[in-house]
Amino acid sequence: MWRCCVDVVKFVLFFCNLIACLGFLAVGGLVVYALFNGEDTFIGKHIEPSLSTSNPTALLFTFIIIALVLLAFFSILTCLGCCGTAVKSSCMIGCFIVIEFVMFGGSVGGMIYLHYNYSYPVMNVTQEGLAKSLHLYGDDSEIMTALWDWLIGFAKCCKIGQDDWTFWEVAKLPDSYKVPKVCCIPPDLECMYEPRPDNTFSGDCVSFVLPIVTILFYGIPSILLLS
């Protein structure tokens, strides 16, 4: 009976890490494709591989490099868990466990820090993160603009919290625009000049994003502990 339980645990560990490793490699491949063929993706422009201040796509290139580093790290981590279980290598499994313990400790430490500094840490972090991302809306980041446009169109929201649409003042909007055009409720397409509750989406974007952030906030440490 004990032997059977051990085999089941090994199979689950092998299968989960195999799927995760293939997933990270697939996403990494898509990121590399976007790096060299950005004009054929939703980015819509060629990404110049340079961090020079004169490069208009330097911010996008920075995000891609960070994404590739993280994807490579998680690919190696899941590969250690997958291959170590398959070949019964105590060294590979030991490295896998040590790395996960470090990540688990860091995530728990972050949770404790946020709970100590905020009364409602997940909501506060979500609201602050959305508010700070607005300054990238417009010409600064095509990715952030596309994400916000998708969020507004899907969730029918254009506010952050219960305040008015004043958060959009930091965004790179056309002259005299107070909100993006995507915030308008059809058939009215002129709300960006004078947004009102009857012509502009008044939903709170925080309410839509909050459940996703909560799952990640508490789910990732739980998965690490279980693994």
Score class of each variant (00 low, 15 high):
residue 113 Y to M: 13
residue 127 Q to D: 10
residue 103 M to G: 11
residue 124 N to D: 09
residue 141 S to E: 04
residue 96 F to M: 03
residue 79 C to W: 13
residue 111 M to E: 11
residue 126 T to V: 05
residue 136 L to W: 07
residue 88 K to E: 08
residue 75 S to I: 01
residue 127 Q to Y: 10
residue 99 I to Y: 03
residue 124 N to W: 01
residue 111 M to R: 13
residue 105 G to K: 13
residue 73 F to A: 15
residue 98 V to Q: 12
residue 126 T to M: 02
residue 84 G to H: 03
residue 126 T to F: 00
residue 143 I to C: 08
residue 79 C to E: 04
residue 104 F to D: 08
residue 76 I to Q: 06
residue 82 C to Q: 03
residue 82 C to D: 02
residue 147 L to M: 10
residue 130 L to C: 08
residue 78 T to M: 06
residue 140 D to Q: 14
residue 123 M to E: 07
residue 147 L to R: 02
residue 126 T to I: 00
residue 140 D to H: 13
residue 137 Y to W: 12
residue 118 Y to N: 14
residue 120 Y to F: 12
residue 89 S to W: 01
residue 106 G to T: 11
residue 121 P to F: 04
residue 110 G to Q: 07
residue 136 L to I: 01
residue 93 I to H: 05
residue 70 L to D: 04
residue 77 L to T: 01
residue 84 G to N: 04
residue 77 L to A: 12
residue 143 I to W: 10
residue 81 G to Q: 00
residue 74 F to A: 07
residue 123 M to W: 12
residue 138 G to S: 10
residue 110 G to D: 09
residue 78 T to S: 12
residue 110 G to W: 11
residue 92 M to R: 06
residue 149 D to M: 11
residue 98 V to K: 12
residue 124 N to Y: 02
residue 147 L to C: 09
residue 112 I to D: 14
residue 70 L to A: 15
residue 95 C to I: 00
residue 70 L to P: 01
residue 116 Y to S: 10
residue 133 S to A: 15
residue 70 L to E: 07
residue 86 A to F: 10
residue 111 M to Q: 10
residue 145 T to W: 06
residue 143 I to F: 13
residue 118 Y to I: 02
residue 96 F to D: 00
residue 150 W to N: 09
residue 117 N to Q: 10
residue 124 N to P: 00
residue 148 W to M: 04
residue 123 M to P: 00
residue 77 L to C: 07
residue 138 G to Y: 04
residue 115 H to A: 15
residue 71 L to Q: 08
residue 138 G to F: 06
residue 140 D to N: 14
residue 80 L to M: 08
residue 117 N to W: 01
residue 85 T to V: 00
residue 110 G to Y: 12
residue 98 V to A: 15
residue 71 L to N: 08
residue 140 D to S: 15
residue 124 N to V: 01
residue 132 K to F: 03
residue 86 A to M: 15
residue 74 F to S: 07
residue 97 I to H: 09
residue 116 Y to W: 04
residue 133 S to F: 01
residue 74 F to D: 02
residue 93 I to D: 02
residue 105 G to R: 11
residue 111 M to H: 11
residue 90 S to P: 03
residue 135 H to W: 11
residue 81 G to R: 00
residue 150 W to H: 11
residue 150 W to I: 05
residue 121 P to D: 11
residue 103 M to R: 09
residue 129 G to I: 02
